[in-house]
Amino acid sequence: MAMKTLMLLAAEAEAPLTKWGIFPNVDSAVFGMFFGIAMIILVYVMIQRARAGLPIPEIRRIPGMEAFEEAVGRATEMGRPVHITNYAEDVGDYDTWAFWSYLAHVAKLCATYDTRVINTNTDYLTQAVNEEIIKQAYLEAGRPDAFNPDDVRYCSPWQFGYTMAVAGIIAREKPAANFLIGYFYAESLILAEAGALVGAIQIAASSATSQLPFFIAACDYTMIGEEFYAGAATLSKEPVIYGSVVAQDIGRVAFTIIIIIGAIMNTFGNDAMIRLIMF
């Protein structure tokens, strides 16, 4: 009787608020924390190895990255501007941080070749940072007077308001190169088709898996998924940054091994791996 009462009490008891007393009681809270720490250590170790000149695995070349200079060069030859946008992500988003590497690179190329670069925005804070990055690129290229603040444009915070504005800008300004880099939603294909209609060479890089088929169909080069982040890292031309990309690849191999072992264990009725990841 006493045992039955205890079992009933245990069944009625509320789930614990925390895991190990400090982690919130949500899926993967503990695993996520340890995985994060492991990744930070891995990134640090790989960067230190790169700094010390020790061998680190090679990074394959991404075709889209090599097309940047070709696209800006084509715009220069045709005397037409270059358009670059990252659509909606705000300043606190890692897609925006990766986009800034591309923006700085494209702006520097445009400043060097004396080509106009048009940047369209839907987030006002991102636009302020973008303007500063482009201005700095022109300064570094020794052409501060060529920078035109009117080419860093805030369009609309509304998805299709922004899309209409950008499609209009592309139709009027006829950029020879169109860079769609960042996280996109339903407007992705409209922007890419607007670029295709004016004959722009188009390079897309996105982590939005649902929009990748549209970019692949409509753009000349598409960097998919992690290539978007890896490309941003390799643009810095600083070998130590490669370390973080190598760490990213090692993490992916680790994940693949976990998936294979977990699948085998689960096939034989053992769910220990799933419980470990979900803890």
């Binding site: 897609d95 700085a104 990055i133 570094e140 982590s207 890292a233 130590v240 993490g251």
Partner: peptide
């Protein structure tokens, strides 16, 4: 793809937090 994106985003965040990626400060280096 999602696993790759997650790891890429994680590495990008670490680069910014550790001060290795400073593009948000302006400049191209």
């Amino acid at each position: 793809l999602s696993i790759g994106i997650f790891l890429g985003a994680y590495a990008a965040a670490i680069r910014v937090f550790l001060g290795l990626d400073k593009k948000y400060l302006g400049g191209t280096d």
